[in-house]
Amino acid sequence: MELGFYLDLRSPLLTSFPCHRVAVVPPETESSPWQNFADETVTGNSVLSFESEQFPQIWNTSLTGQVFDPPSLETIWMEITSGAYGQVQRAKGLFELPDGALIQMDFVDALPGSEYRELNVPRWLEGRPNRFSGMEVVGWNLEESTIKQILLDSCLSDHALSQYQSYYKETIAS
């Protein structure tokens, strides 16, 4: 079970059953609610702890059925993660591309750059993908409606999608 930072570790729901508790914390963290909670502590990424700051907000959206124009996705991912629509601490997404691939993108504020990974799933080249894709952003003062709008502005129309899909199907066939 994965517990997001937004859950209260003292919640009876989380303490009422037998389990092995693991805390993944930044290096050199001497004490934290996570370590107090855990049976085992693992050193993870060097992210800033935000205990003394305002609690960040978490925003997520499903994008299932949407397929992205790749250069637009690259542009808005860069804009979002560099703080154009609010300070972002963490962003992760699953995005469909016109060649049928499903990619995972990850950004952590304290770590350099973003990570990209193509998931090992079948290429979807028949209409709009009927499998989950979506995005999650953790940060402060997020302009949620603008983020949603630029995501949609970067998605392909039915016409553009079918053109891409017939092109890729031909390429694969030849």
Partner: peptide, 8 residues
């Protein structure tokens, strides 16, 4: 345009 969003 370099991308769909740049065109919009």
């Amino acid at each position: 345009y370099p991308s769909q969003i740049a065109e919009k």
